[in-house]
Design a protein around this nucleic acid. Structure first.
Length: 432
RNA sequence: GGAGAGGUGGCAGAGUGGUCGAAUGCAACGGUCUUGAAAACCGUCAGGCCCGCAAGGGUCUCGGGGGUUCGAAUCCCCCCCUCUCCGCCA
């Protein structure tokens, strides 16, 4: 939900945002509805006022006077019900339309139709030069018996995998390193629910509008009918959903802002519509593990943008500690999603792809999520919607691709990045 | 999954058809008193929407949705959640 007063004040900004974000929405149709609603509300409320007034009189009246007023009120009540019904119809559509409206991107966001128009803003590190023919992470991982994709497919279908032995240990090490990294900076770690209600997905901006088919719905078997039933729970595709929703319908303590939350969880994505895309290896899989940064802060754009830089930097520090080359790109309007105000991706160099691959996604959402989730704070007596931001801090197994490929040796072993060794009992090499 | 009890303002807790957006207590905030503080006393103290420059007025909200009624926190139906007991279970 967006700020309607803002929408009414500058409809063109929202129309441009919709166009730039490739959304097909009709804001003028909404205004027609908005006007209808505004016409109906006074009518309904006037009738209710009469009804309330009569309600106070009725107990005091008797005989004919009472009977007459009751009769009058009965007619009024019948008419009122009709106008209430049409108002309700309008309000349902009125509200549904609002859920589809975008937030307005910052002026600095490049306008573009899709990811081909994203803009690189900086690079870090040197791309590796191998003195031998380098292998990809699948070949290396299978030879070392630390990644098993065929058995993952046997057990759970395409895009599933096993990490095994030192592969599983390596993932754990990266998670723990990242968690400690944020913990040292005072972040609060969450082990959040992995399932959430529709409202949480709606509140964080994933529903409605296209992400429904990316999300697994949890069902249960009905013993009597033998059919699967929807339990109205959905597996999270990111802990942003349940960490952000932690404060749903709350007025948070203003003095405690900004809240810096690190959600560590498994994430589930159906990847519908991506058949044939990134089919090889661990790049695009149905289940992964992620440490996500979620910040809830005051509604101050300047401050929010400082936090944006902070959480991007936190992620960069992880990559720098791992000594993996990466670049930062400004995500253009057509690739950023309706909820985002500003978005940068971090892409890490993946030798086997001979390109950078997206490993992190940093977003500033203004008050978009806070409005939908109804998260506010008290600003000197005025209740204001918070701002929210989020960024990946690390996501695996995707991050294993550059780690394994970057640190491979001529003999097919993998050198463990120094910062991870304390998390692997001091081990330095996988495969010896 | 079965049986029972509940869900009311920041919290506790009254309220079983009308004058109830809701008693009372606590907390919080402002004030009086005080050198300062405490105590005492006085006052304020829910959010959304609509009209209005404002003052103010109207309306909605007692877990959520529907219904009965002139009128619902209160009666009926469905759903959600919490608690107690039983069953199952890592």
């Amino acid at each position: 939900m967006i700020d309607l007063n803002d929408l009414r004040a500058r409809p063109d900004a929202y129309k441009k945002a919709a166009t730039d974000k490739n959304l097909t929405i009709d804001i003028d149709a909404f205004f027609v509805l908005d006007e209808k609603r505004k016409e109906l509300i006074p009518q309904v409320e006037e009738a209710r006022a009469k009804q309330n007034e009569a309600s106070k009189k009725i107990p005091q009246l008797q005989g004919d006077e009472k009977a007459a007023l009751l009769a009058e009120m009965k007619t009024l009540s019948e008419n009122l019900k009709k106008s209430e019904a049409s108002l309700k119809d309008i309000e349902v559509e009125w509200k549904n339309m609002q859920y589809t409206f975008p937030s307005v991107p910052l002026d600095t966001v490049p306008v573009g139709k899709d990811d081909s128009e994203n803009k690189e803003v900086m690079t870090w590190g040197e791309k590796p030069v191998f003195g031998f023919e380098p292998k990809d992470h699948v070949e290396l991982g299978e030879a070392l018996d630390i990644i098993d994709i065929p058995r993952g497919a046997k057990v759970s279908g395409a895009r599933n995998y096993y990490l095994k032995g030192d592969g599983a240990r390596l993932q754990k090490a990266i998670m723990n390193f990242t968690i400690d990294h944020l913990h040292a900076k005072g972040w609060t770690l969450f082990a959040p629910p992995l399932m959430a209600t529709y409202d949480c997905f709606m509140g964080t901006g994933f529903f409605p509008g296209g992400d429904e088919n990316q999300i697994y719905i949890v069902g249960g078997k009905n013993d009597e009918t033998g059919t699967m039933e929807n339990d109205n729970l959905h597996l999270i595709g990111t802990s942003e959903v349940t960490v952000c929703s932690y404060h749903k319908d709350e007025i948070v303590d203003a003095d405690a802002l900004p809240l810096r939350y690190a959600g560590h969880s498994a994430c589930f994505r159906r990847e519908a519509g991506t058949y044939g895309k990134d089919t090889k290896g661990l790049y695009r899989v149905h289940q992964f593990e992620k440490v996500e940064q979620v910040v809830i802060c005051k509604a101050n754009e300047e401050e929010s943008l400082k936090i944006f830089a902070e959480i991007r930097n936190n992620a960069e520090e992880v990559l720098q500690a791992l000594k993996l080359p990466y670049r930062i790109i400004d995500v253009c309007t057509g690739d950023m999603g309706k909820s985002k105000v500003y978005m940068q991706d971090i892409e890490t160099w993946m030798p086997s792809r001979d390109s950078y691959g997206e490993t992190h996604s940093c977003s500033y959402l203004g008050d978009f999520q806070a409005r939908r989730l109804n998260i506010r704070y008290d600003d000197n007596g005025e209740k204001k919607f918070c701002h929210t931001l989020n960024n990946t801090c690390v996501a695996s197994p995707r991050i294993l691709i550059p780690v394994i490929e970057h640190y491979q040796n001529a003999d097919g072993t993998i050198t463990i990045p120094e910062v991870l060794r304390p998390y692997m009992g001091g081990q330095e090499i996988i495969g010896q």
